[in-house]
Simulated assay, not measured.
Amino acid sequence: MDQQFYNRMAQIIGWDFSQLHVQSYGERWDFFQEVEKLVKRTDKVLDIGTGDGSKLASFASDVEIIIGIDDSTEMIKQAKKKNDFHNIQFHVMNSKTLDFPNQSFDIVSCRHAPFVASEVERVLKPNGVFLTQQVSEGDKQNIVSIFQRGQHQCREKGHLLQRYMNQLTEAGFSNLYTDTYVATEYYQTAEDLLFLLQHTPIIPDFGQKKEDAQKFDRLVQDYQTTKGIQTNSERFLIVARK
C-alpha cells in the first residue's frame, strides 16, 4: 500500500471509520477476537500494520505487552494520541525489516497489511502463532466492475491466499489453518459509500478521473436496495504456528 496515501488519510480522519453506517451479513469471524482467543497473560504481542491501534485495546489487559507498528508516521501519531494503556507501545517501522531480536514475541498479528513471512518467523518464539486477515481478490466485485479498476484487479481468485501459504511454509511454519468468507454489505447512504472509496485504496486514484463521478452515480443507482447500497466483503484468514 502507498505510505503517502495512509499518511494523508491519517491527517484527515485518523483512520476513524466509527461514523460509517454499514451493515454486514455473513462475516465468519472478527479478526481481533480470534487473536484474543489465543493470547495468555504472559504473552508479548506484535501487531503489524496497526493503523491507529484502536483494535488493540480489546485485549490489552489480557497480555503482558503489545507493540503496534506501522510504516505511516501519521498513523503512529494518531495511535499514540488515542491509546493510553501502559502496556501498549507504538513504533514507526516497515514490516519488511522488523527491528526486534530473534524470538521476541509469542503472537504476531497482521490485519490488511503486508508482511514478510521470514521476518515474522524470525521474531516469533518457538510454538508462537501468526494470524493474518487479508482482502481477497473478489472484494467489492461490483464496484471494481463498474470502475474497471481495483486494488486486486486481474488476479486469479485464490492467488493471494496460496501465495501467502507458500511463503509461510517456505519460512518454516507448520500446522497452517485457513478460512474464508464472502459477506454482503449495505452502505446506508451514498455519502457512506463515498467516504469508503475516498479513504481506502479499493479503487486506486478514486475521484481523479473525470468519469468517476458518473460511475459512482451508476453504482448507487444500480445497487440501491431497501437495506442500503449493496456490495460484498471478501476476506481470508491464516493461522500459522511456528
Rank of each mutant, 00 (worst) to 15 (best):
Q3N: 14
I229R: 02
W29E: 03
F147Q: 01
Q214R: 13
D47L: 00
D139Q: 00
G207E: 04
A183H: 04
E121A: 15
F5L: 02
G51V: 03
F147Y: 00
V182P: 05
I107A: 06
A10N: 03
D217R: 15
L46A: 07
V120Y: 11
K80S: 04
I238S: 05
S104F: 01
T180V: 14
D47Q: 04
G128E: 04
Q162S: 09
N127M: 12
D47F: 05
T169H: 12
L219E: 03
F17I: 06
K37H: 07
I66Y: 00
D2L: 06
G68D: 07
R163S: 12
Q224S: 04
T200Q: 03
K82G: 14
T184Y: 12
K215W: 12
C154L: 11
T180Y: 12
E234Q: 13
K125F: 12
E191T: 09
F17L: 00
M9P: 05
N102R: 14
I203P: 06
D30S: 14
F5Q: 03
E211R: 05
D217N: 15
E64K: 15
W15D: 06
L196E: 06
V22K: 10
K140G: 03
M165I: 06
R8W: 15
D70F: 11
V182C: 15
M93G: 10
D2K: 09
Q214Y: 10
H199D: 02
